[in-house]
Amino acid sequence: MSNQTEQPDLERRGFIGKTVLAAGAAVVAPGVLVSVAGAGAKTDGADPGKRYGLLIDTNKCAEGCTACVTACNEEHGIDLMQKPEGLDEAQWQQQKPQWIRKVKLQDNLTGRVTNLPLMCQHCEFPPCVDVCPTGASFKRADGIVMVDRHTCIGCRYCMMACPYKARSFIHQEVEHQTVSAPRGKGCVESCNLCAYRLDYGADNTACAEACAAQGHNAILFGDLNDPNSELAQALSSAASRQIRGDLELNTGVRYTNV
């Protein structure tokens, strides 16, 4: 009872009576805390001058290697999910989230075999963003296409629209998540180029890092808009292509030697 009558008073008295406490607790402590916890964090948001992307050299992508997939699953807590009890294995394979996948191709005419990782292509004109009724599917200022789960209603129209099957729907309750990748039942999700890592000052994605650690260096991450970036240099020196370039979506993920 007393709580309720006290509250408005507290708000008013806070300026006078609790100044000392407030000075100590509300100013100093969080200041210290934020400066420690938020080291390197971007306060001004995604940089509109940048456009993040990937270049994948399929010649370097090794057959049978799934380091990028494993790294992605660990990074975003996808591996914390388990097959729901009673669900058959085949259906689980079709229902579990896959932000990145390995694809092996063979040319019909020449027989040449290609391996490549496929993920959200971070289009400049993303069909998933066009069709989303609530605007939950959106493109960040720095070109990253992602889902705002707070407004996603789970209609799956974006999955219908995506030419790359890059998106996954969460078919079950999610028990465990990492702090940096909140995910739950009934929403759609996909590769976000490790957006939070970039926001905290990292300069590489989990998949590219894992690929490099394996010594393959098939995935190159960088800023497409920065002519001096390793990515832009590589793109300007070798022929590359977009998957489904016919749709003119101007993808942020490019491939060489497909």
């Binding site: 085949a90 394979q93 079709q94 896959q98 996948r101 390995k102 694809v103 092996k104 191709l105 063979q106 040319d107 019909n108 005419l109 075999v113 290609t114 496929l118 219908m160 030419p163 790359y164 099957k165 998957i243 489904r244 497909v258």
Partner: peptide, 26 residues
């Protein structure tokens, strides 16, 4: 319309993919 695979790699056959690329979805 959804079961029929999307044409990601024209002229190429998908030998392996965990996302059923190039295959009829069940």
């Amino acid at each position: 319309g959804q079961a029929f695979p999307m044409p990601l790699f024209p002229g190429q056959e998908v030998l392996a993919s965990t996302m059923l690329d190039g295959q009829i979805a069940p």
